[in-house]
């Protein structure tokens, strides 16, 4: 929850709502990019940027080399797998019918 994981913005889904698709270690999901959009970084210009993602929100812009390296280390330690698994499981929960 607090650790965060680097991912790359690959597509803007909804510029007004600040929603974009990110690639996190091969898994794609939608995140909110409101916190990394500013005058110097308009929404459309964010594609390709590496960001630090916490609970589905891009919270900080980091450079690509740094992100890849952190991801590599995290993957080696199995922690990225835990984050990616949480993303996958959550997708299943969203789709589940009310009990």
């Amino acid at each position: 929850m607090c650790l965060g994981i680097p991912g790359r913005i690959v597509k803007i889904d909804d510029a007004a709502k600040r929603l974009a698709t990110v690639d996190v270690g091969g898994v794609k999901r939608q995140v909110n990019i409101a916190c990394v959009v500013d005058d110097a970084h308009p929404v459309e210009g964010c594609v390709g940027d590496w960001v630090l993602i916490h609970v589905g929100f891009a919270m900080s812009r980091i450079d690509e080399q740094e992100a890849a390296e952190t991801l590599k280390i995290l993957t080696e330690l199995g922690e990225a797998q835990a984050e990616i698994e949480a993303i996958r499981l959550s997708a299943a929960e969203v789709g589940r019918a009310a009990s």
Binding site: V31, N32, V55, G56, F57, A86, L89, S90, E93, V94
Partner: peptide
Amino acid sequence: IRMVYSPMD
């Protein structure tokens, strides 16, 4: 009770 990754979910 559902575990979610994000408040968006």
